[in-house]
């Protein structure tokens, strides 16, 4: 299988503080990988480095074989590296439909059409409807996001990420804050994703991890602690100690 995302020796210093050090990992097409680690392990920093929100101090990031380390976040998105935000980050005054329309038009690079009509763009309405039904959002299509329930905002986040046709999809705790009845929808949607894309999911809920992931990467104190298949990693005593132990402690 082709390697879609390859990270080599990725490091980041803030002042003297090393928040990510020498992380190396890769995702192949079809991978379903969970990124876990105790709070403060540097998971979010790692995602920000990969997506381009932060510039690394050292290391290389390759997307589908091409070095994207120096590209902007938007350029990486255009090359198929898509993320969903942990805390839903949406346009408060726009409707759910408008979000989907903007994501699709942006994906197809049709946003510099100054005299076209959004409503009459061919195929757009159908694709919006399809994307919304996937997350059960049809009923709130015309609602402004500011007045949407939090769980529904999360579902819209996922719907946006999916509609952008990612090659590599990074989901930052996709089910956090979503009612249990709805989180099933998210997992179903992830199950139905095309098999040739790679998914990296940051998750705390070990039930979800066990259900979703074929491989696991564990971060602790900004370093790669271990990685491997789900079974191997969950059996690793170091993981039990650092991750599960500290979580048990925290609760």
């Amino acid at each position: 299988m082709t390697i879609l995302l390859e990270v080599q020796g990725l490091s980041k210093n803030f002042g003297g503080l090393q928040v990510s050090s020498d992380i190396t990992m890769s995702l192949k097409a079809g991978d379903r990988c969970a990124l876990i680690g105790p709070n403060g392990a540097g998971k979010t920093t790692f995602v920000n480095l990969v997506t381009g929100a932060l510039a690394p101090t050292a290391g290389v990031i390759r997307l589908d074989g091409r070095d994207v380390t120096r590209l902007s976040a938007a350029d990486r998105v255009r090359r198929g590296l898509i993320r969903s935000f942990q805390v839903a980050r949406l346009f408060a005054s726009m409707t759910v439909r408008e979000h989907m329309e903007l994501a699709i038009l942006q994906r197809d690079r049709r946003t510099f059409r100054l005299f076209a009509s959004v409503g009459r763009t061919r195929g757009l309405a159908a694709e919006v409807a399809e994307g919304l039904s996937l997350m059960g959002l049809e009923a709130v299509a015309e609602t402004t996001v500011g007045s949407l329930a939090y769980g529904q905002q999360r579902l819209l986040e996922i719907a946006l990420a999916l509609v952008m046709r990612p090659k590599v999809l990074i989901l930052d705790e996709p089910a956090a804050g979503v009612p249990h009845s709805e989180s099933q929808r998210i997992l179903d949607a992830i199950d139905r994703l095309p098999k040739d894309l790679a998914v990296l999911m940051i998750e705390h809920d070990m039930d979800l991890v066990a259900r979703f992931a074929s491989t696991i990467v564990v971060l602790a104190q900004g370093k790669l602690l271990c990685s491997g298949t789900t079974r191997e990693v969950l059996a690793d005593p170091r993981v039990r100690e650092v991750y599960l132990g500290s979580r048990a402690h925290a609760h």
């Binding site: 726009m94 038009l105 942006q106 946003t111 510099f112 059409r113 100054l114 959004v118 763009t121």
Partner: peptide, 9 residues
């Protein structure tokens, strides 16, 4: 009301 206008919003 165009795609461009939507993006600007």
């Amino acid at each position: 009301r165009s795609p461009f206008g939507l993006a600007c919003r």
